[in-house]
């Protein structure tokens, strides 16, 4: 693939059951990046290949059919076969994003909330409603001193809409871990009612502890979220055709932030 110089290079990891990779690629490309969608077999064959990229993205889908539990088998495979280099990538402060199934993988692999530990300390469990939920929700962007520490979510409005589509999106962790996440300002998005108040089902679609929809690590470069920003790149994708400007949706800003961070 001919790579244009000065454009950041994104790798989207895919495997059996990965689904949202095409639209994720479109999202990054519109924001000005080169994108490769690469099968995990290729990455395992050539273990250092992953390090040559600037941004690592794990997309949504049903990797390995969600067998055993969502994201478990892919997390297991990535950790055992590519763990060393993935940890290197994470600690080098390069941007990493895990969306939906990708978030499940990051958490079950132990890359979030504490990549240093690289041990699973939280999980995404079955929705309280016991069913798959496909709907739009409102997200509150958590800010400290006017902004979030997460590079992906910088300069977003206090509340943005995004679509979710998952059966296992309930963020669960014990009290100690939760306390740490909150105190270190690692919560990026929380489910909310449209006016910022406490959300009831279905605006709280899964029963996540502390209504957590997305978190980052302490350094703010690794971001995992259940909602799908790649499905809100254009205004047209919003149910009422609302966007951040004439053409685009708020999801685009999230990817733009990571690209701009590298420039």
């Amino acid at each position: 693939m001919v790579k244009t110089m000065n454009k950041p290079n994104v790798i989207i990891v895919r495997t059996a059951g990965t689904n949202c990779d095409y639209e994720l690629q479109t999202a990054f490309e519109i924001c000005g990046a080169n994108v490769d969608r690469i099968h995990i077999n290729e990455l395992i064959e050539n273990k250092d290949k992953i390090l040559s990229y600037d941004i690592l993205a794990i997309p949504g889908g049903f990797s390995y059919g969600d067998d055993i539990a969502s994201g478990k088998i892919l997390a297991n495979e990535l950790k055992n076969k590519l763990g060393e280099n993935i940890k290197k990538f994470a600690l080098s402060k390069k941007p990493i994003i895990g969306i939906c199934n990708g978030f499940q993988v990051l958490v079950k692999m132990g890359l979030l909330p504490e990549p240093n530990k690289f041990e699973q300390t939280a999980t995404l469990s079955y929705n309280d409603s016991n069913k798959f939920e496909c709907r739009w929700v409102y997200l509150k962007t958590e800010k400290t001193d006017g902004n979030t520490k997460c590079i992906w979510a910088k300069n977003l409005p206090d509340i943005i809409p995004l679509p979710v589509a998952h059966g296992e999106g309930k963020f669960v962790a014990d009290d100690t871990v939760l306390k740490n996440i909150e105190e270190n300002n690692q919560v990026v998005f929380r489910y909310t009612a449209y006016d910022g108040r406490y959300p009831k089902y279905p605006l709280a679609p899964n029963g996540s502890f502390n209504q957590i929809a997305g978190i980052c690590n302490k350094d703010g470069n690794i971001f995992g979220l259940m909602p799908h920003p790649e499905r809100y790149i254009y205004k047209l994708q919003h149910p009422a055709r609302q966007g951040c400007d004439d053409k685009y949706g708020w999801g685009k800003k999230i990817f733009q932030n990571a690209i701009d961070f590298l420039k």
């Binding site: 095409y22 069913k131 798959f132 496909c134 739009w136 149910p239």
Partner: peptide, 23 residues
């Protein structure tokens, strides 16, 4: 309808359920 992912691929612009506000 909500058990089926009707947004995957990000190309569904007129969706099976419609409304102004998200609820």
């Amino acid at each position: 309808i909500r058990q089926y992912d009707h947004e995957v691929q990000g190309q569904t612009v007129i969706k099976p359920l419609q409304g102004n506000s998200i609820v």
